[in-house]
Design a protein around this nucleic acid. Structure first.
Length: 938
RNA sequence: GCUCGGGUGGUGGAAUUGGUAGACACGUUGGACUUAAAAUCCAAUGACCAUUGCGGUCGUGCGGGUUCAAGUCCCGCCCCGAGUACCA
């Protein structure tokens, strides 16, 4: 009896690969390059589950395929070892993050090696290594010392701006800045204090510090970026997030909004991810208008995308933290306004979410003048107006906007209808489609397009407003009040931030005992004794010397998780370089990632930040392309099948699923290893699992305890994790790899189920059998039959196409068909053996390489050439197609002609290269169904 | 609410982009081998009707339409998933 002994095979080749560095690559200009990248994992404590490798398997198949195709393939792996998840795990287990990181990485590596990936491990990187984060810090300094020149549309050194200020003040400058800065001359600039100068420069720096409102998460003890908050709570842990004003570092990603948007056109990323990024950037084109305030010299700026509705404006609204509030509020209303503003500031992120569509506000007592009608209109403070978008003030058109409508109804403000034949008594008309405007002076009678154009011209002509583009994307908060991250290389001299220099780096994370965050937001680095900067000696020294003349406090917060992951793909090209973040020879050879595979959950986080970061580096000629990944594929998640048992309230009795008839039960998660595939619970195992179940009682149905199931995200805390190690042990790595690819399309999420794993395992066994008789390698020496070659060439063609499309499930299907057909024909010849092995090898690397060695090939399969299919075997099929013609021929349109059976046969025989003409035209397509000609398309 | 995806057998999923729907695999049923089990192999397997045979009808969420031909295109609904959320 023959045995497919995957254990022996896999062990042998894993050892061979690591001993021989089989997958090590170097720059080789004689070969075309190809760069296949996985999103590197966070080494969290839970280890890998079967969901993780799905993308690694896909990328590994592609990398192996490309090697066969003659490419020099860069396929590296590393660890995103800084950041919240690692630190949370460290805190949870009471160990230092440095230690847990090492342990976790070893565990990951062990698991990865078992699955036979073809990574070049000599290029491994860890974001928490000083040799790595030195460069992250260096890039931060570069951001700090840069501003965005809108004329050149790129980042430039801040000194350029300083020079301009010195020579001509800030009149007529075109640098990216969201705030209005008072005009000053070159003389003014010279007279400004250092502090004042820096205050102005901070508005332009791409990395800057400011006292701003941030998302504060008390439980995590840190601020969070917008993309780290989901449904009003923290993404990690699901804790409450509130607003808090704090001194923070931020990155001016908004300067790159337009380029981040337009760059999407040149990359092959999925539409869904492009949509998410487009939404996140949120470009809109509208008009900035200024409303004069009645009895005042001030003006109120608003932004609108609907200038056509300007005659429907019946009030203005400003956000509760608008800078003009104190000026606008008249004494009579002051008390009420103050208390309204105060209560608004106490609201948490989640409060605001639940208050949507139930907005409230208060009248300031002052009025603005409508720029076209001259009417007096009320100015309100409304909590639905966002301070961070536009000018924090809006013109309100109740007849055309849902929020304005509700607000006007609630506070009984006048509603003007400007749409002819549209009833707005119960709901506003929010669409841009209407027949005619009314009550709109010179816009009366016009539709949307006409009105929009006419009002635009008028606004600009009368200097009321100007066309303006706005983006939703906000500055990204860059400080984390956490320990386990890159220290921000900044020290403060008289309150002014100064960056370290390149030679000062790395600024090493100090070793401290107490690295827990504090609820007040004091960063753990505040606990470090040796954490002050000696400007003269350029070293870190004890804080007690801070009163000395050259010694200054260092920044206490660290960088967020996305800092290190925003440029790691460049470091893989040259990971050991001491002089530069990557060498120019390597950079010019590898250039960019050709295929990037990873989860879609990073769409508005890592995948956006890294594009920004790359563009920034590109602006300084540090990288050759401004988009780092040509093609991106998002793999779907593998979901777990959690199990629940039911506890009667306040007792220790558990009752079987179908006996539960009311809500008097608590659902309790149990580990899925305690449950078999028929949902029966192993009660004895459960009792040993956790002490709380030791003395539990159970109510059974038909002598069994049946659990409830639920499909959800795979996670250790949900006790629904399947460990790939267990599957490797039972079926082998090749079966696991094949199976994960066979489950369905790579992009799709799917629940894990073991039910059909025997199918792919059988396929491997059959392939083995194709070349073995009993335990001995044995193949026929006969020439292959035509049918065998047909099957083989069909498979070669399909496999080629499918791998390129990353359609691995259909690819495996065609391999299964091929092997089945070859088994039937019992024609196992060397001629077909070679190409078949290469076909299978990207999926089952150990298995086929074992066969290579058996047939005596000296080379490893990595060097074999992927076969091309031979068309002549495929055309054969067409020739044998049964042809008969009876009945009427029907043609499209006026075409008609008589065809005999014979002439049709001719058409078919000559295939697409036919010389047959129909009414002087060459047929595009001849449709034959069940041997009958249905139609000829010309 | 808005913006994207997507609804195909008992299950996971195919379908050359408008051309024989259900490939491939799981599961199920029957059979062979076996003292027996496992393993392996063979056959059947969308539903319904007809079965001695041939065969027939209906079938890709629902309702219409275009076409010789629709899972695929168009119009109107229903449901599921993802992203986003007072963005003026």
């Amino acid at each position: 009896m023959s045995v497919y002994n995957f254990r022996l095979i896999e062990k042998k080749w894993q050892e061979y690969w690591s001993k021989n560095n089989t997958f090590k690559v170097e720059v080789d200009s004689s070969k075309p390059k190809f760069y296949v990248l996985d999103m590197f994992p966070y080494p969290s404590g839970a280890g890998l589950h079967v969901g993780h490798p799905i993308s690694y398997i896909a990328s590994d198949i592609y990398a192996r395929y490309k090697r066969h195709k003659g490419f020099n393939v860069l396929h590296p792996q590393g660890y995103d070892s800084f950041g919240l998840p690692t630190e949370q795990y460290a805190i949870l287990t009471g160990q230092h993050p440095e230690k847990t990181t090492k342990i976790n990485i070893n565990r990951y590596r062990n698991q990865l090696d078992k699955m036979g990936f073809s990574y070049d491990w000599s290029r491994e990187i860890r974001t928490s290594d000083t040799d790595y984060y030195k460069w992250t810090q260096w890039m931060f300094i570069l951001l700090f010392n840069s501003c965005y020149d809108l004329n050149l549309d790129r980042a430039v050194n801040i000194n350029k701006l300083v020079k301009i200020f010195k020579n001509q003040g800030n009149e007529n400058i075109n640098f990216y800045c969201e705030e209005n800065i008072l005009k000053f001359t070159s003389k003014d600039w010279d007279s400004f204090s250092k502090q004042k100068k820096e205050e102005i420069l901070q508005k332009y720096r791409l990395a800057f510090i400011s006292y701003t409102e941030v998302n504060w998460c008390e439980k995590l003890g840190t601020v969070l970026a917008n993309d780290e908050i989901v449904n009003g709570v923290s993404e990690r842990g699901g804790f409450e997030v509130t607003k808090k004003k704090m001194e923070q570092w931020s990155i001016r990603i908004g300067a790159y909004a337009e380029r981040l948007l337009s760059g999407l056109k040149k990359i092959e990323w999925s539409d869904s991810i492009k949509d998410i990024q487009k939404n996140w950037i949120g470009k809109s084109t509208g008009y900035s208008l200024s409303f004069k305030i009645y009895n005042s010299k001030s003006e109120l700026q608003v932004y609108t995308t609907r200038p056509d509705t300007i005659f429907g404006v019946s009030f203005l609204a400003v956000s509760p933290d608008h800078e003009l509030i104190s000026q606008l509020t008249i004494d009579k209303y002051k008390k009420n306004v103050d208390s309204f503003v105060k209560s608004f500031k106490l609201k948490s992120e989640r409060d605001i979410l639940t208050k949507i569509n139930n907005s409230s506000g208060i009248f300031t007592g002052s009025y603005a003048i409508h720029p076209l009608t001259g009417n007096k209109i009320q100015i309100w403070i409304a909590d639905y107006v966002l301070s961070s978008y536009g000018y924090g003030a809006v013109m309100c058109v109740p007849c055309g906007d849902e929020r304005d409508f509700k607000f006007a109804k609630k506070y009984k403000i006048n509603i003007i209808n400007i749409f002819k034949n549209i009833n707005i008594s119960t709901k506003p008309h929010t669409e841009k489609i209407y027949d005619e405007l009314i009550n709109s002076d010179f816009l009366n009678g016009l539709n949307y397009e006409e009105a929009n154009q006419k009002i635009g011209l008028k606004l600009e002509k009368n200097n009321i407003g100007f066309k303006n583009v706005k983006y939703k994307i906000r500055d990204s908060v860059f400080s984390r009040q956490r320990y386990w991250g890159e220290p921000i290389p900044i020290y403060f001299k008289n309150g002014i931030p100064h960056s370290l220099k390149k030679d000062d780096l790395p600024l090493k994370l100090p070793v401290i005992k107490n690295f827990l965050p504090t609820p007040e937001g004091n960063p753990p680095l505040g606990n470090a004794k040796i954490w002050a900067w000696d400007e003269k000696k350029r070293i870190v020294v004890d804080k007690k010397y801070i009163d000395n003349i050259n010694i200054f406090p260092l920044e206490l917060s660290t960088m967020p998780g996305w800092a290190g992951s925003s440029w790691y793909f460049n470091r893989y090209m040259d990971p050991k370089n001491k002089l530069n973040f990557v060498g120019s020879r390597e950079l010019n050879y590898w250039k960019e990632v050709d295929l990037y595979i990873g989860g879609i959950e990073h769409a508005s986080g890592h995948l956006l930040y890294s594009r920004f970061w790359q563009k920034f580096l590109y602006d300084f000629n540090l990288v050759p392309t401004d988009e780092y990944a040509k093609k991106l594929v998002n793999q779907g998640m593998i979901l777990g099948n959690s199990a629940f048992i039911f506890r009667t309230s306040k007792s220790n009795t558990y009752i079987s699923k179908n006996l539960v008839n009311d809500n008097q039960y608590e659902r309790v998660r149990v580990d899925i290893s305690l449950v078999n595939e028929n949902d029966e619970l192993d009660i004895e195992k459960l009792k040993k699992w956790l002490p709380e179940f030791k003395d539990a009682n159970f109510k059974l149905e038909n002598g069994k305890y049946i659990v409830a199931r639920e499909i959800e995200k795979m996670s250790k805390s949900k006790f629904n994790v399947i460990n790939p190690d267990d599957i490797c042990k039972k079926y082998g790595a090749d079966t696991l790899r094949l199976y994960e690819m066979f489950l369905g399309p790579i992009e799709q999420s799917k629940p894990w189920s073991m039910s059909s794993i025997s199918g792919v395992h059988n396929f491997l066994k059959k392939t083995w059998k194709l070349f073995h008789l009993r335990d001995n390698f044995e193949i026929s020496k006969n020439d292959p039959s035509v049918n065998s070659l047909k099957s083989l060439n069909k498979a070669i063609k399909k496999v080629n196409e499918d791998i390129q499309k990353l359609s691995f499930n259909t690819c495996i299907s065609s391999l299964m068909i091929c092997v089945n057909e070859l088994l039937d024909q019992k024609c196992n010849s060397l001629v077909i053996l070679k190409p078949l092995l290469i076909l299978i090898s990207p999926f089952a690397p150990h298995f086929s390489e074992e066969l290579w060695s058996l047939i005596g090939s000296k080379s490893t399969i990595a060097n074999e050439k992927f076969p091309d299919h031979d068309d002549s075997y495929l055309i054969e099929l067409t020739k044998n197609y049964p042809i008969s013609f009876n009945g009427k021929l029907r043609f499209k349109k006026e075409l008609s002609m008589d065809l005999s059976n014979e002439s049709i046969e001719k058409i078919i025989m000559s295939d697409k290269k036919t010389n047959f003409y129909l009414n002087g035209q060459k047929p595009k397509k001849i449709i034959i169904i069940k041997g009958k000609i249905i139609n000829i398309v010309v």
